[in-house]
Design a binder for these strands. Structure first.
Lengths: 349, 349
DNA sequence: TTGTAGGCGTTATCAG
DNA sequence: CTGATAACGCCTACAA
């Protein structure tokens, strides 16, 4: 049962032409109100459903967009996708997701199959291993709108939505300085990635602006892993002098640092303040909640979607490259909040 | 530039028919190796891309599936989606995501637009507010494969993949009993939902099997929120007697419980053991890591995908309803592990 | 206002 | 083995 019914089925039943049915269904002005209502009524009765596929083939527009991310179940990425979906869904778009597993080869593959499916646009955060960008440039050449979010490459004509990582690094460091920290260490990620370079530079700039000496040995490259954070602390504590604060470009490394400091009997934040980056869900649930820079992922997704919509509304030929930079938000929690701790201690006495 | 090129462009250039080109491209046996290779070569040169849309219109198969979840950025759901994507992607399917925001109206809307787009199948976890299931039955009537995961409704002919919530509840409770707990409380979720009823029954069954008295007042309905967990603890501590363990059907409520117990100066797990449910990422990062029942979401997604594949391979008419029940996994951590704590204490002395 | 006809890109059928 | 043709379901000039 439930044969697919088409506009022809309706037109036969009503003894009118399929064209008329089509017009009635599409609010075409060139049609009498009477026939229109009749068509609409019988369409509903016959349980007619528009075949968006045929429509898409005709119009060259599928109303589908693709989103390419490393892993869909990372909190950050799934939140961006949520933002994209929520912004685009009211406009009739569907979101197709693809994972690269941080592998360029998958990235290339995904882009190709997405183009085959005739999506109307692509949103992507490039894989860590992506160096060559021919596959990405190809998308632009085919006139398919492409929008980078978070992890981007600098390619002419491609819009992007990112957060101001420099500012994020600056805010985090400034906050630690204002808490009275004088010797602030920085755990950076892979400095080949722009985002980590920017966070690092934000850190250095804040140190400079507030006349705090940035000790070179205190800038360490640390993976985004709990163990790496612990190891880094041990490395630091093998030096001749130790920091009184850590600004980590990763929440996981920040967590590892806190765990290791605790093992060493060092008090956080009294002796060492810690700030992380990304505002991973776990940071706020900890017994000692971790201060972290929020990348506002849902907002990022929404903005990327808006850029896309503007891009397809605008004239096709004139595709303006738009660079949106969102301001990160510092969520101050106990791991860095000396004032709060002091108050708590006083109130307990 | 980059005009869309079709098989006709290739056929013109080669002075052969489009049909032959099509055959060459599709590994059709009825074609000479020579022409086939020629076509393949020039197709590559001309940068030809198959239009999957036209193919889909012709074949009635889009190679797209839809996944409907309450929120895509919940750890559990995004992990299920990951599993679905990873299992289906090698088979050439794309995954379209939809969110219901726990609202039936959105659910109905999403199902309709998905059907319009001619997807090949739907995966879904129903919204909490869903009572009436006409919109879901409609999908089956249209012969579109539908597979429930986690939150299902009992509808004839619909396959589902869930975890054995009863067993999850049983395992958690059994574990607490084996840790020496005698008065175990249970925080259940909304008992209108099957999953929570099953967890509750698992709890009761374990208590019975081990001859531990289940005190009715210790079975409480608690929301999946941190504050609700805290409140529940306060309620319990206003009773004439208190539990020595909590099995919470929610990790968030478990966390709230632990926080409140700590505020009261009650030691976890020495005085009160706590077990949660879902294995949310944060549970293992806590200073006191929380024991929790893992729902193996990625596996759930993979299995749902497999059921789908079987269903479309099999004859269309004979759609067998398949019920897959996965075994949950108890991750024992410090919040319930008295043995571990004892050892740690001894080693410290 | 309505009908006719052609085409979107592909594939399947039927001749040749 | 290859070519012509129709068809998938819809939309849109153009004609009536």
């Amino acid at each position: 049962m439930a044969e697919k019914i088409t506009i022809y089925d309706i037109s036969n039943k009503l003894n009118i032409s399929a064209a008329t049915v089509s017009r009635a269904l599409n609010n075409n002005p060139k049609i009498s109100l009477k026939t229109k209502e009749l068509v609409l009524k019988t369409a509903a009765e016959m349980n007619y459903k528009q075949n968006r596929l045929a429509q898409a083939l005709k119009s060259g527009k599928t109303n589908n967009v693709g989103v390419i991310v490393p892993y869909i179940n990372r909190s950050f990425f799934s939140s961006v996708i949520r933002g994209i979906e929520e912004e685009l869904s009211p406009h009739g778009y569907h979101v197709i997701i693809c994972q690269t597993h941080e592998d360029v080869h998958n990235e290339i593959e995904q882009i190709n199959t997405l183009l085959n499916t005739q999506i109307d646009g692509i949103f992507m955060s490039v894989a860590k291993t992506t160096q060559d960008t021919k596959h990405i440039e190809k998308v632009v050449k085919e006139n398919t709108p492409l929008i980078f979010f978070d992890r981007k490459k600098n390619i002419d004509g491609i819009s992007s939505v990112v957060i101001d990582d420099f500012k994020g690094g600056y805010l985090a460091t400034e906050h630690l300085i204002k808490q009275g920290c004088k010797k602030i260490a920085h755990f950076s990620g892979d400095l080949n990635l722009e985002i980590y370079r920017n966070r690092h530079e934000g850190y250095l700039a804040a140190m400079k602006d507030y006349d705090v000496t940035a000790i070179p040995k205190f800038s360490m490259q640390v993976n985004s892993k709990i163990e790496s954070g612990s190891t880094a602390i041990n490395d630091l504590w093998n030096l001749s002098e130790q920091p009184d604060a850590i600004f980590s470009a990763s929440d996981y490394a920040a967590l590892g640092a806190i765990q290791e400091l605790k093992r060493k009997g060092i008090k956080v934040p009294e002796e060492v303040g810690v700030v992380g980056f990304s505002n991973e869900p776990f940071t706020k649930y900890m017994e000692l909640p971790i201060t972290s820079v929020d990348q506002t992922p849902v907002e990022m997704g929404r903005n990327a979607a808006k850029v896309f919509l503007e891009q397809i509304e605008g004239s096709k030929t004139l595709s303006i490259e738009k660079k949106v930079v969102l301001t990160p938000k510092l969520n101050i929690r106990e791991s860095s909040n000396r004032e709060l701790i002091k108050k708590l201690l006083v109130s307990k006495e």
